[in-house]
Design a protein around this nucleic acid. Sequence first.
DNA 1: TTGTCTGCAAACACTTTGCACTTTT
DNA 2: AAAAGTGCAAAGTGTTTGCAGACAA
Lengths: 168, 168
Amino acid sequence: MAVSDDFALQSVKVAMTPWERFDEFLQARGKRITRQRRLIVEQVYASHEHFDADQLIDLIHATPEGAKASRATVYRTLGDMVDAGLLRKMVLGGREVYEHDYGYPQHDHLFCSSCQALIEFSSDELIRIRDAVAATHQFRAQSHRLIITGICADCRSSRSRNRHQDRV
Amino acid sequence: MAVSDDFALQSVKVAMTPWERFDEFLQARGKRITRQRRLIVEQVYASHEHFDADQLIDLIHATPEGAKASRATVYRTLGDMVDAGLLRKMVLGGREVYEHDYGYPQHDHLFCSSCQALIEFSSDELIRIRDAVAATHQFRAQSHRLIITGICADCRSSRSRNRHQDRV
DNA sequence: TTGTCTGCAAACACTTTGCACTTTT
DNA sequence: AAAAGTGCAAAGTGTTTGCAGACAA
């Protein structure tokens, strides 16, 4: 599941579009460019929202022409995209969601436990602390993930009666 | 799954042992104190390590006397303990692990992707940043989770040939 | 042509549930 | 005795896999 070293070297090139990058990834791995993989990448980039496997599958099944890719293929391709560094996977309130990774700046999230909204933010200070903590433990930090859970502004104002606290 | 408001109020008392707290939680919910629940709580507190459901079940099945609790009951009780605020559940490298929460200071983790070691740390600065970020987004932060992934000191030194990078 | 990919359905790993029986209160 | 809890096995979930036929290269 980890990006192989040889491929990681290539990832220094930043001017590629996501598809070009995936293309290169497939080539480097002797994998083929198929109709399904193209369709999946296309749908993944159709929006910038966070999504899970099921949502993507629904999206694909909803495409006009007989364009299709099976559940198994979607899972396999999502895995490839994560390996290629195009997507990042995380677990949120029990479900595994994916978000675009390639070309997007490192960021973390505020997660509303009431409406499930996910708000992105980034903080240089956080990175500083991360590195400082790692150094203290002679630990080589490779990445991190911070999720702040709470109630978003919208849910706080509509506290009265609306969809407040139903899920989670 | 969330701590009910009435119970949350009681949680202000901090002088209780984990069992006393669980006891109180059960009473507040009209739940009963059974042999199984006692056994499970006991085993959970037999060590301070992070564990998953299976490890706990093995531990229970390994107890000397015919002391037993079924898989289903263990799952049900772990859920109750999380609700009671005794345990905290998190996902780490694919598996759901639990750690003691009650009476333990808030902390975050360094996770070694090579040997799966979990190192705890806490940082006041981090809390400060968390609150600052939340404020910026008119978000009411309730909790957070930061996991820094990388390679621990041990694995870095035994980089040569030992169990290096075998698991994710 | 060769070897990878796909779709399907079966297999999986965990977790949750329905139900008859047991235990606490 | 009444109500809640337990164990079992069955049912879910969400993801992965083996394999025969389909399809890039």
